[in-house]
Design a protein around this nucleic acid. Structure first.
Lengths: 202, 202
DNA sequence: GACATTAATTAACCTTTGTTAATTCAGGCC
DNA sequence: GGCCTGAATTAACAAAGGTTAATTAATGTC
């Protein structure tokens, strides 16, 4: 279900025996999305926990004026949930959409967590999902209070250089808290400067 | 150790028996800080989980140029940790300082979590700390991608109207991702407009 | 290939923010 | 009270971002 090197990583990371890890994976089923497919729609109440084997998922919010604001992007080897539903038990305000061909491992969040709670061997694995999301959100907040838009863009490129080939600029712009026009100007400034920056072209 | 109405709230919220809740509190000890006291210093590696009974804590980062950036504010009835230490096992990049007379309940994070892990009755309580922090960080991120600085300021006032009496503007400014000068201008714009806004004076 | 559609860039203009510095305000202290 | 210190405000200017619209580029479709 997962490549061997990743299996080994998780065995080590979660400090589990192979059969324990397998019992975890047995709770999950594979789900394939093609580019543009909506995984979770705004208003949905399905509480899934998903691991991205490959691909790219965009979480966005539809504003009253009809504009979409990208709230987060998730890519291969990351977990995500419709957190409105899973954490707060409410209908999702967000839509989760595949930006490219994407393969997920998905499990029902509650079933999965109940399973983890039954055995304290899993306590580390259980914390992992929440902590890794928390870590990323913290980093996000830090980037907003510490960096200006240009610096946030550079940091994103550093974190995920190929994101510009995989996701349209207009979605990246709102993720950074700016407009597409402004991102375009930032790109131009950087191109004219001496800063080396990942290029567009697919 | 805690007022009765809050005890009842937590009994209900965590779905625990009184003696179970008490066994939790027995792990914590009270700590009193006066205005200006540093609770956790940059570079510290003490992994504490703290609950704020009363008061206000500012978490800030010292930049190379000597300026302080407020990363988060925590107030009464909220939990916080030096998350660099607790989540990532590294020295804290941040300093946590009391902005006013503050009373904490503090416990060693690892001891506390190990205790919670021993009994699945506590699984809900255990998730609570992580989930409530995650929720707040998510909200923070949303406010940065969806709102402009003025709107973020208004939202903060809505969340915690008395924050302006309790915390100097310069700290609030960096929390919002702007400069004190800019916050001052925003305040002026709002004062001259018809928007009702909590006033300064102590 | 021609056409339609959408994304990205560019331009023009206005607003806001950052920066630096001067000024005013408020609180603490003798 | 008068003085000191730091916070907040104000001013002046430069830099950046938002908005709208026009133009160009890229992509998909027939």
């Amino acid at each position: 279900m997962l490549e061997e090197n990743k299996v080994n990583h998780y065995l080590d990371f979660f400090d589990l025996a192979p059969e324990e890890l397998m019992s975890l994976f047995s709770l999950a089923k594979e789900r394939v999305l093609k580019e543009g497919d909506v995984y979770v729609k705004e208003g949905s109440t399905t509480g899934k926990l998903a691991y991205i084997k490959s691909g790219l998922i965009r979480c966005f919010l539809l504003k009253e004026n009809g504009e979409e604001t990208t709230v987060l992007l998730r890519w291969e080897d990351q977990f995500f949930t419709a957190y409105d539903t899973v954490l707060f038990n409410q209908a999702s305000r967000f839509t989760y959409q595949a930006m490219e061909h994407t393969v997920l491992l998905e499990a029902d969040y509650q079933v999965f967590m109940d399973f983890l709670n039954k055995n304290s061997k899993f306590s580390k694995a259980k914390d992992y999902f929440l902590i890794s999301m928390l870590a990323e959100m913290m980093e996000r907040v830090e980037s907003f209070v510490l960096l200006n838009p240009e610096e946030r863009y550079l940091r994103l490129l550093k974190d995920k250089p190929n994101i510009v080939q995989r996701c349209p600029d207009k979605y990246i712009a709102t993720l950074l808290g700016i407009t597409p026009v402004s991102l375009s100007r930032i790109r131009k400034r950087l191109a004219n400067s001496s800063v080396a920056v990942p290029q567009k072209m697919k």
